[in-house]
Nucleic acid binder design. Structure first.
Lengths: 139, 139
DNA sequence: TTGAATTGTATCAAAAGAGGTTACAAATAG
DNA sequence: CTATTTGTAACCTCTTTTGATACAATTCAA
């Protein structure tokens, strides 16, 4: 259970919101489709709201809608909105600084990490939420 | 501590081996540079050996050497040799199959996951162990 | 204005994964 | 034969993720 599925759930949630249009959707309903607890959904929506991808309304008749058109929401934005980890972690303990390899390894890996992250974002930028919906509906 | 640093450590280990040339290196020495326990290193070398990237020798005067020239070891091979997780995990519980979105989400995400993994590998294929060494030495 | 519904968030518990450590069998050089 | 070294199993601890409960704040509607 320890692998981060937030991005997967976020795409799922946003797709549901997209298909609901203007109508506010409750965390309870979303949780039913994702098959999890409403609080998990609300936590996630909180991140998506910070990134200005959704708008939530508190109170009776409250709920959440998309903040933009599906065609204007790129998956790279979703990815960046979440506190997902990097592709690979750096050393858990700092390498031995007395070793020439150890001393310079961290800097190299850190640069590589950033480069990979960039290529992931480039890939995800190619897809909008509308593409997702089309794919889902076509299935 | 739960983020996987195996790739980072693997690149570190292979760099040490590369710089040692024909000479066998002991897990104890490598652990000293990486600043971890020898068993952690041996576990990792076990994976690298399955991928035919290194050769280990049991017994007194044992140790490990590279199985190929540094210029012939691409970082994509290293990445594939390790049981690293995916960029993002799929849902921890299966989505609600009664919901049209839930029903088709998994397939879409799985495809996306594979596509991203491919672009990571393409990026890593651009670097060989020799490039790493040059970068480290030049620093 | 009262009451029901809903989000936002704090707090805790449960499950899984990663890394560290010890222990020891098997192999090998000398 | 003995010392050394890998390979691996077993176990522990720490961290992260997810799930769950509780409740204050907000909002709508009667």
């Amino acid at each position: 259970m320890a692998a981060n599925s937030q991005f997967a759930v976020a795409v799922h949630v946003l797709t549901i919101l997209a298909k609901s249009g203007e109508e506010r959707v409750k965390s309870d309903y979303i949780a039913g489709s994702v098959n999890t607890n409403p609080v998990v959904i609300r936590r996630l929506l909180s991140n998506l709201q910070e990134a200005a991808l959704v708008v939530s309304q508190v109170g009776a008749a409250g709920g959440t809608t998309l903040a933009k058109q599906p065609k204007d929401i790129r998956l790279s934005e979703v990815y960046k909105a979440l506190p997902c980890g990097e592709v690979f972690a750096l050393h858990s303990k700092e390498p031995n600084q007395d070793c020439p390899v150890g001393r310079n390894m961290a800097a190299f890996l850190c640069g590589l990490q950033k480069e990979i992250d960039k290529s992931i974002e480039e890939k995800l930028r190619q897809y909008t939420l509308r593409d997702v919906i089309e794919h889902i509906d076509g299935a």
